[in-house]
Design a protein around this nucleic acid. Structure first.
Lengths: 131, 131
DNA sequence: CTTGACCTTCCCATAATGGTAAGGTCTATG
DNA sequence: CATAGACCTTACCATTATGGGAAGGTCAAG
């Protein structure tokens, strides 16, 4: 199976597959006589694993950790859970940060008339000197 | 006032100030005889405006829009509110996306024993073939 | 006049892709 | 068999906003 078919089968673009190989997330694929990368069922399995981990927001280094644990028959579920929960903590921090932006902005926007007049608490807040 | 002092006074690093000038967010600063950038009170005001907008998560193009509106005496608060609310929508989308990752992961992690055994629903989910 | 703290520009790196160009390969059809 | 078109290869550039560092000029204090 060529890279295009692997991409179609997994939802990971050919570009990404090559990149993952380049940065060492994937073992270099076998090549055909012409130098084409050749993929087999286990490769697709790995690609889908990566795809799902990426969709859950894991960074490539984290995905790399997860792949290693996945292949490590001697792993403990504790290790896996630790990676996942660390990521959850990061996600929650990010959410809190974004939410506080939303809170501030909606608080300001509520007081903005949104009409033809120029006066606006949003700009007023942005130009205030403190902080 | 030199760039270092302007940086200290506004919380915008010298590096960032130069970058903002380079990408056109800021007017090129006046220069001293020696070629040093020189900043005055209104410049600091603008830098603080940018700093606050950035902290609220506005992208540099959005900050640019806000700066233009700020300087436009003929602006309507409607325009300002539109920029802000569009950003709020983007933030909320991002929050929803991150929250659904958190939900999925916590759901999986709850069922992970987190002990010395290798079996783990998190890896199990990542390697499942669907999706 | 030297030292140290500034400033300047320029280049590199980051994270994880997408786009494109130049060129080789494979396959189906005329 | 030749050729077109769909594929593949590598290599380079762009993205976003920032930090780091080097090489070299400037300024103020001692």
């Amino acid at each position: 199976m060529n890279i295009g078919q692997a991409a179609d089968a997994t939802g990971v673009s050919a570009k990404r597959i090559r990149y993952y190989e380049q940065v060492g997330l994937l073992e270099p694929a076998k090549r055909s006589d012409a130098g084409y990368r050749v993929y087999t069922a286990p490769d697709l399995h790995t690609l889908r694993f990566i795809q799902r981990a990426r969709r859950l927001g894991f960074s490539l280094p984290q995905v790399s950790e997860l792949l290693a644990l996945w292949h490590d028959r001697g792993r403990s579920s504790r290790q896996v859970k630790a990676v996942a929960m660390k990521h959850v903590d990061e996600l929650r921090s990010k959410i809190d940060e974004l939410q506080s932006m939303v809170d501030t902005l909606t608080h300001l926007a509520i007081r903005c008339d949104g009409d033809e007049r120029p006066d606006c608490p949003i700009l007023h807040d942005l130009e205030r000197s403190e902080s």
